[in-house]
Computed example of a mutant assay.
Amino acid sequence: MLSEDIKNQLKKEFEKLIEPVELVFHRDNSELSKEIEDLLREISSVSEKIYYRENSIIECYSYPCIAVKTIEKDFGIRFMGKPDGGEFDPFIKTILMVSRNDYDLTERTVELIEEIDKQVDIKIFITKGCGWCPPTMLKIFSFALVSDFITATAIDCYAFQELAIKYNVAAVPKVVINDRVEFIGLKEENEILGHIFGAVS
């Protein structure tokens, strides 16, 4: 599935890994699940610090679903769909972020996030051809890395059309917070933070 050239690029990227990462997969009986399994096994074969395993216990809105976590901690970062095409690179960056605890947020934002003491559930609706989806997904995953109260799930609209219809997704990226606050497009982190506080107030 992955060319030797891509595998060699991944080997170089994965030299930056610090903590071992688990790609935990909750599958269903679909052909999509088999394709995702094959892809995750290939990715994990590139580095001794990446482990693939299946677990039907991880919580998600629907399946198939991937959790990206360390061995010690589940940050609540989920990916629903097959991370290929335009979603491949941000998925690899997510692995690196989790391994390195390398979030893309300012110190002031981190200080404000640490004040949150209520559960924040964030859905990011994405498509493979969307240019603004990867930076939006990575930014919101950063919020989940910082706070134990924030969970973030990227949802491929084409793989989960019923969810996309339920949340009236007409453009992407669409972000829904606690099913109360939503916005469309790439936003600055202070805007995202404002939406998060608006959803828990």
Rank of each mutant, 00 (worst) to 15 (best):
K128M: 06
I150M: 08
E115G: 01
I124R: 06
N101V: 00
R78E: 07
C130S: 04
E87G: 00
V110H: 10
D84F: 14
F143C: 04
A144C: 10
I113P: 04
I150S: 05
E111R: 13
D121Q: 12
I116L: 13
D148K: 15
K82W: 00
R100K: 14
G85C: 10
W132F: 14
M137A: 14
T136M: 13
P134G: 07
V110E: 10
E87H: 07
F91C: 07
D104L: 11
D102I: 00
G129W: 14
I124Q: 08
P90I: 08
M137K: 08
G129H: 10
E114Y: 08
T127W: 02
T106Q: 04
G131C: 00
E115L: 14
Q119W: 02
G86Q: 11
K139A: 11
E107F: 01
I92M: 01
K93E: 15
G86S: 10
Q119F: 11
K82D: 05
L145M: 11
S147C: 10
K82V: 03
F143P: 01
R78I: 06
I122F: 12
D121Y: 14
G81W: 02
V110W: 08
V120S: 08
K93V: 11
C130W: 02
R78N: 05
R78Y: 03
V146S: 06
F79L: 06
E114C: 06
K93H: 12
E115V: 01
C130A: 07
F79S: 01
M137D: 03
Q119M: 12
K128N: 12
E107A: 12
V98D: 05
T94C: 12
I116A: 11
I124H: 06
L145Q: 05
F143A: 05
S99K: 05
V120K: 03
E115S: 14
T109R: 09
E107T: 06
K123A: 11
P135G: 08
T127C: 11
G129F: 13
M137P: 00
G131S: 12
K93S: 14
D102N: 13
P83A: 10
F149R: 15
D89C: 00
P90T: 12
P135T: 08
A144K: 04
F88H: 09
T106R: 12
K123C: 01
G129N: 13
P90G: 09
M80D: 04
D121T: 11
I95L: 10
I116N: 07
